[in-house]
Amino acid sequence: MKIRKIYLGLLSVALWAFSACEKDEYDGLTDPDPIPAAAITFPQSVEANGVARMEDNAYIIKQNSIAAGQISVQIKVPEGRTIQELTSVTGQRFRSPAPTAPNYSPTVASTAANLAPNAPITRNTAGNLPTTLTGAPGNMVTYTLSLANLPAVLSDAQMPTVAVGDVIRLFFRVRVDNTQQEQRPLEVRVYITG
């Protein structure tokens, strides 16, 4: 009985100590990046039902970029918050097999011939694209890449020009409000429909 009381007492102290810990701004071991201070969304990923299309933790945007001559991604935070700048943009282009409508699930290619650059990127890969925004600072800004001057990192000998079925994979690191803290990198996949 005495051992049981000691055990319960130690267990209570341990539980109290863990519950007294402040929640810091990190997820812990699985995700050391800062938790976003403001919800960042991508309005172009919203489907007809009003819900953003997300697959593989990436926002999916279907875009007629070839006809428009550019790839553009709108980035938004709630009213009262302000996107100051993009601190980093990492991009990759890949060829995706044609998806069957109504599902668009561009899966990252596994062969170097279908990737530009040839090595797969992750959200922790160093930025390799310009960080210029239109409309910053503001609660909604636009990131644009011209297809006429496509950055070299998104073009190679196997894929010199953008074609229908290509996917531009982008990781954005955003600075919101007047803080120096970057938001967690968010992935967007722009599926080229025409």
Rank of each mutant, 00 (worst) to 15 (best):
107 T>R: 15
190 V>D: 04
168 I>W: 02
172 F>V: 02
61 I>G: 10
100 T>P: 15
83 I>P: 03
77 V>M: 01
166 D>P: 05
97 P>A: 03
82 T>E: 06
26 Y>W: 06
123 R>A: 08
44 Q>W: 12
165 G>R: 02
179 T>L: 02
171 F>I: 02
101 A>P: 15
193 T>M: 07
74 Q>D: 15
154 L>G: 00
76 K>D: 07
88 S>V: 03
185 P>A: 00
194 G>P: 13
99 P>M: 11
187 E>D: 01
39 A>R: 13
149 N>H: 03
168 I>C: 05
85 E>Q: 12
184 R>E: 08
117 P>H: 01
39 A>L: 11
96 S>P: 00
190 V>P: 02
78 P>V: 08
49 N>L: 11
177 D>C: 04
139 N>R: 10
63 Q>S: 15
140 M>Q: 15
99 P>A: 13
12 S>T: 14
151 P>R: 00
87 T>W: 06
48 A>S: 14
29 L>Q: 10
11 L>S: 14
55 E>K: 14
22 E>H: 09
109 A>S: 14
58 A>C: 13
32 P>E: 11
165 G>Y: 06
164 V>Q: 07
186 L>Y: 05
65 S>R: 08
81 R>G: 01
59 Y>I: 09
156 D>T: 04
39 A>W: 08
138 G>L: 02
187 E>W: 05
132 T>R: 03
153 V>R: 03
30 T>G: 06
88 S>G: 01
105 S>M: 12
127 G>S: 04
69 G>Y: 06
21 C>D: 08
13 V>D: 10
177 D>P: 00
80 G>W: 02
55 E>G: 10
75 I>V: 13
32 P>V: 12
122 T>N: 13
113 A>H: 00
57 N>M: 12
107 T>Y: 15
154 L>A: 02
66 I>G: 11
57 N>A: 13
59 Y>L: 12
3 I>T: 11
3 I>G: 05
93 R>E: 04
162 V>W: 11
161 T>W: 05
27 D>C: 08
46 V>G: 14
60 I>H: 12
183 Q>K: 07
35 I>W: 03
148 A>H: 00
127 G>H: 02
43 P>S: 06
135 G>F: 04
